[in-house]
């Protein structure tokens, strides 16, 4: 009886998608390059201050790779003029290039990529069985996938479920930089799935290896071994971002980031 009461008193925990996609105030958002403010000194300073090497410059191009950003917030705090901030979690994309911001230094503008391809029509399923495989992840991206199923995020309201058998799965959620030792089981899991099937790279490590890129014991990204349909950046990828990625996969939302910047923000207005 007491327990029944406790259950009823707890009320409804599930949050609306819009609320989930808003980043809590204490966490830094996604950095956005402001091409017109990137002087030589600022660029050099950015390259030097980023602990994970997300900024790079070569061949007349300055780049910020969101899949290398560990969200420390340093660039946002130290260079608020040159770096804007995107504070929602609708960051999943269908194309790796859409996580990289590129500035043409000669013209002082962002390089505009083509429109992102729509997700595959055969994946517009009413429900989606997801099989998660950790391929060398420290455990946090896995934890975030599991938490996408908690009462707050409640992935099942969208028809997404986590399934035990790859035979029941429509989507393979991969975390980690793909360790050599996990490559055979990962491929076996993928081949056990029935078509149509999708692959989602969850977290920076799965996208490009993050800090383990270059280690001889890992492949450095899921798309080196399987065709990836959706990339969910983050260190680790947050549950709301994962939900957005799955919604993108089944074609129920439109991709926000194009060429690493939100469509609505292009061309970027200078910050006051």
């Amino acid at each position: 009886m007491k327990r029944l009461l406790a259950t009823l008193q707890t009320g409804r925990l599930t949050k609306r998608l819009d609320d989930l996609l808003a980043l809590p105030a204490s966490s830094p958002g996604i950095p956005l390059l402001r091409p017109e403010r990137l002087s030589d000194e600022v660029r050099a300073a950015l390259v030097a201050l980023c602990p994970s090497g997300a900024f790079a410059e070569d061949g007349g191009e300055f780049r910020l790779d969101l899949a290398a950003c560990v969200a420390c917030g340093r660039c946002l705090r130290r260079h608020p003029d040159a770096i804007g901030e995107w504070r929602t979690l609708d960051v999943a994309v269908t194309r790796r290039d859409d996580l990289v911001q590129r500035v043409d230094l000669a013209r002082g503008t962002l390089i505009e990529p083509s429109d992102p391809p729509p997700s595959r029509p055969e994946l517009r399923l009413p429900t989606l069985g997801c099989r998660a495989v950790s391929a060398g992840n420290g455990g946090l991206d896995d934890s975030e996938i599991a938490l996408a199923g908690n009462p707050y995020h409640d992935m099942s309201r969208f028809g997404f479920t986590l399934v035990a058998s790859p035979r029941h799965a429509d989507a393979l959620l991969v975390t980690g930089p793909v360790s050599e030792n996990m490559l055979p089981p990962l491929e076996r899991t993928y081949h056990a799935m029935a078509a149509p099937k999708a692959v989602v790279a969850v977290g920076n490590e799965a996208i490009a290896g993050e800090l383990f890129a270059g280690s001889p014991c890992v492949r450095g990204g899921v798309d080196r071994v399987l065709d990836v349909d959706v990339y969910v950046p983050g260190s680790p990828a947050r549950p709301a971002s994962i939900l957005f990625g799955l919604l993108l996969l089944v074609g129920r939302v439109r991709q926000t980031l194009v060429g690493g910047q939100p469509r609505s923000q292009r061309p970027a207005p200078p910050r006051p």
């Binding site: 060398g136 930089p177 996990m182 383990f212 014991c217």
Partner: peptide
């Protein structure tokens, strides 16, 4: 074990 081996020491 060993499936999660990423070469942490070497990194």
């Amino acid at each position: 074990l060993g499936y999660q081996h990423r070469g942490v020491r070497a990194a």
